[in-house]
Design a protein around this nucleic acid. Structure first.
Lengths: 101, 101
DNA sequence: CGATCACATCGACTTTTATCGATACGAGGT
DNA sequence: ACCTCGTATCGATAAAAGTCGATGTGATCG
């Protein structure tokens, strides 16, 4: 798996405002204006966050008329979960490596 | 679950160098000097990254004599996986929300 | 067509991050 | 006691990120 792609997903989750947006999207698809109402940030800031979220692939959008509708991209969340799972399963827990003799 | 804690884990995964370190740790516990040999960064930079990784809880360390031994903290990876899973299971996929009438 | 609405982009500013070399610290070995 | 080695911290710098208001763009509606 491409580390840069993973790092984009990590970046998407590295800001509390974006985590809040993600949480709002768990209630279902929403347009920007709805998200904006529920956040204490300016419209341009929201737009900037949405772009980062889309770059990560974790959120996708469709334009319907003058509204952009955002939703979670389940496939990408699966990719991310599998990465986490692969690391988690790799052991790595304390095993007394004989380093630095 | 605390969003700030999640954001720290996201931040930990938001840099390719840190992802590389994590990958190295999947082979088992390693000390700083071993990690350093395998990375193209200075010792002070490595120390900085290790601090961020520890802050996230995803990596823990023990001091053994003059060496710091780093390893993945499986429990915290489980916490993170559960967060990812909870988002992923929340639906959110395109469902034609009747926004903005 | 002209006004309005939703959204993106621009320019500016501040804060945070990544990085380095130099220095400090602490444990071990001689 | 001194020197060395592994690591942490400091100070500096450059790049990136978060934020805003203002402006641009495209679609919709009078």
């Amino acid at each position: 798996m491409n580390l840069v792609q993973i790092s984009l997903m990590g970046k998407a989750l590295s800001d509390p405002n974006r985590l809040r947006i993600i949480q709002l999207l768990t209630y279902g698809e929403q347009c920007g204006c709805e998200l904006l109402e529920q956040m204490q940030i300016s419209q341009s800031t929201l737009s900037h966050h949405m772009k980062l979220l889309e770059d990560s692939g974790l959120v996708s959008s469709v334009r319907k008329g003058k509204w952009s509708h955002y939703s979670l991209n389940k496939d990408q969340w699966t990719v991310f979960r599998e990465y986490i799972e692969s690391i988690r399963n790799a052991g790595g827990e304390r095993n007394g490596s004989g380093c630095c003799l």
